[in-house]
């Protein structure tokens, strides 16, 4: 699993840096372009899908595991009038941003999910591209991935009420790259941009949800993630001068390289994305 220092490498660069090229609310995950080509609208469309998958209602208590800078929490509180939404992140910078937003009914903790002690049981669990941090490449190689993911699903089960739903979004490791250059670029992103993490394979998740959660719906969105990364990269390039001036050439070059590798990875089916609607199995 990514530890706090590794999470800081990925997310504590500088909130102002990410604000320049993510959407308005700073979703750092795949958007849904079914009916739009606008990044802001597509990020709302993504959160609409997960809202439905999580069977959220205005009087629900929602937990967002790995909540980033609070895009989904803000959507729940502001667009949907959800009464109570709590987020957990391991990034200090993200936590500070959520506190700064001062959203009605929203609370957040900066804590490792394995140390989290919920004050109440939740009606809905949401987790958007956080499970990528749950297993290290070494653990995956040692055959421990399913056990790691199952532990995460067990915790979510314990933190939720009977009848709860879980809206999950995650990147999938799909076809293995065979071209040396592609293997190297994926390796560079894995170790330099997201140290300590690896994307799960779909069959790992299918095994790991048992015996806690029933898979009700799954939808893959490989092309949506390619488009999301293209938006991010063109916005990054659009701010190239400012980024160079404020953070140096290196950061710009690294993030351009990383987003370029992701676009290629989605194009080549090395990676895909899945959205899952899970229903709690109450009698286990």
């Amino acid at each position: 699993m990514s530890d706090k220092a590794e999470v800081a490498v990925s997310y504590d660069v500088d909130n102002e840096f990410f604000r320049l090229w993510l959407d308005r609310r700073m979703n750092y995950t795949c958007a849904v372009f079914d009916d739009t080509d606008d990044l802001d609208a597509a990020q709302v469309a993504k959160l609409d899908v997960l809202y439905r998958y999580g069977h959220v209602r205005p009087d629900s208590r929602v937990l967002d595991i790995g909540c980033g800078w609070g895009a989904n929490l803000e959507y729940l509180a502001v667009d949907r009038g959800v009464r109570e939404a709590h987020g957990i992140t391991l990034s200090e910078a993200q936590h500070a941003e959520i506190v700064r937003r001062n959203l009605p009914g929203v609370t957040a903790s900066c804590v490792d999910y394995r140390d989290y002690v919920p004050p109440v049981r939740f009606d809905t669990i949401m987790s958007i591209c956080m499970i990528e941090h749950v297993c290290t490449p070494q653990q995956a190689r040692a055959g421990e991935a399913v056990a790691r993911y199952r532990d995460y699903f067990r915790r979510a089960w314990e933190w939720s009420r009977p009848g709860a739903h879980f809206a999950l979004q995650c990147i999938l490791r799909n076809r293995a790259p065979r071209l040396a250059a592609d293997i190297r670029e994926i390796g560079w992103v894995t170790y330099q941009i997201f140290p300590g993490g690896i994307t799960p394979r779909m069959e790992d998740i299918v095994q790991a949800v048992n015996p806690y959660w029933e898979i009700v719906e799954v939808r893959t969105r490989r092309e949506d993630y390619r488009r999301t990364c293209e938006h991010w990269r063109s916005r990054l390039r659009g701010h190239a001068d400012e980024i160079r001036r404020r953070w140096g050439d290196h950061l710009l070059a690294d993030y351009d390289r990383y987003l370029t590798a992701c676009i290629r990875a989605f194009e080549m089916h090395y990676q895909s994305l899945a959205q899952w609607s899970l229903r709690r199995i109450d009698e286990i």
Binding site: A142, R175, R178
Partner: peptide, 30 residues
């Protein structure tokens, strides 16, 4: 060898032998 070098090794051998190992089997090569 880390997991990426293992992948490079498998791809290298596949090319020499003109075969292809299914991806899910690669994930379990220890």
């Amino acid at each position: 060898l880390d997991s990426l070098q293992t992948l490079e090794l498998v791809s290298w051998a596949e090319e020499r032998l003109a075969i292809r190992v299914p991806d899910e089997e690669l994930a379990t090569v220890r």
